[in-house]
């Protein structure tokens, strides 16, 4: 038996953890871009902030998009609730609330992640320390994931954590693509050009997919291939297809454990089927931006349905 509030805590613990990692990855991609280009490009920093979902609060505080300001804002600004620090704090608060559902290893990994990241982000991070700080955050995230995979019983507790992770990840991948959908339109580059388009590289890096893409495509890239990879390739753990494959798997296990199907399960199956039936040409015909906007809305509706079906609140 599990309290609805506990399920909510596990789901959001996982979402915030994933969010902290995604934002870190975005910051890393942006930082790398700034290093490899001669002049800094405020448009790139704008896209980092937009993809991280904090453009409004950023603009309420700053007028221009500059690397140091963006970095500080997405990593540690108190006025940005989705900063890495804010997301990790929220993850730990949820872990505290669901303490009795977690193994000691998982709790300690989360507590440790929060304490070390909080300490390292107490002050603004000087540029020379950024690589080290960003890799520390990622390593801490990996330790939490490792503890979850290595020590948690495969029951409903684990399922809610995984579903939370995957919903957040699907949202993040679709936002990475949507923020830059215009550079992926067929008119923006000729098919078959080499992987030197900085914009494309930024997209792949933000999803930790540049190595696997390069490996699969032998060094050549096209907008269609990139979009296809991030949306439809179920081998890539950050693709939309992978996320919904796994979401339906976990909901299927909940169905067996609870001996009852839910509307959320139906929604997930429909999404999975749709991703199987579609292909990248059809998406580009329909319009990439329209497809992504639609997907994000459905993903949000699915999340709300989970909350209702499993009685996250009254």
């Amino acid at each position: 038996m599990m309290l609805g509030r506990t399920a909510a805590g596990l789901f959001w613990l996982a979402r915030y953890l994933e969010r902290a990692e995604n934002t870190t990855r975005l910051a890393e991609a942006g930082f790398r871009m700034a290093l490899t280009r001669a002049e800094s490009n405020s448009e790139e920093w704008r896209s980092v902030v937009t993809t991280a979902g904090c453009a409004d609060s950023y603009l309420a505080k700053h007028e221009i998009f500059r690397s140091d300001k963006v970095m500080d804002f997405v990593l540690r600004d108190k006025e940005n609730p989705t900063s890495v620090l804010g997301a990790l704090h929220a993850a730990r608060e949820n872990a505290r609330m669901t303490r009795t559902a977690l193994t000691r290893e998982v709790w300690e990994a989360i507590n440790d992640a929060w304490m070390s990241v909080r300490d390292i982000l107490r002050r603004p991070v000087p540029e020379r320390d950024l690589p080290e700080v960003l890799s520390l955050v990622r390593r801490q995230g990996a330790q939490v994931r490792g503890a979850i995979t290595g020590t948690m019983l495969r029951n409903d507790i684990y399922d809610f954590i995984q579903i939370g992770t995957l919903v957040e990840r699907a949202d993040n991948t679709s936002r990475i693509l949507d923020t830059k959908y215009y550079v992926l339109l067929p008119s923006s580059a000729s098919i078959g050009s080499s992987l030197d388009n900085v914009q494309w590289e930024m997209i792949l890096r933000s999803a930790s997919a540049e190595r696997s893409f390069y490996w699969l495509h032998g060094g050549t890239a096209s907008p269609i291939a990139i979009a296809d990879f991030l949306i439809f390739d179920a081998r890539l753990p950050r693709s939309l297809a992978f996320c919904y494959d796994m979401i339906t798997e976990h909901l299927g296990r909940l169905k067996v454990e609870y001996q009852a199907s839910t509307p959320a399960h139906e929604l997930a199956i429909r999404q999975e089927n749709r991703l199987t039936a579609l292909n990248i040409s059809l998406v580009f015909e329909e319009g990439l931006h329209e497809f992504l906007t639609g997907f994000m809305a459905e993903n949000a509706a699915f999340s709300a349905q989970i909350e209702a079906d499993y009685r996250f609140s009254e």
């Binding site: 038996m1 609805g4 509030r5 009795t100 609870y258 009852a260 009685r311």
Partner: peptide, 28 residues
Amino acid sequence: ADQMGVELVEGHDLRVTDGRIAMRTTRG
């Protein structure tokens, strides 16, 4: 709660139904 193996509840997890106190679980 953890050591006893029982649920840790807050007030808003509970309500009165049929003259009993009941906790809101994922299954009702």
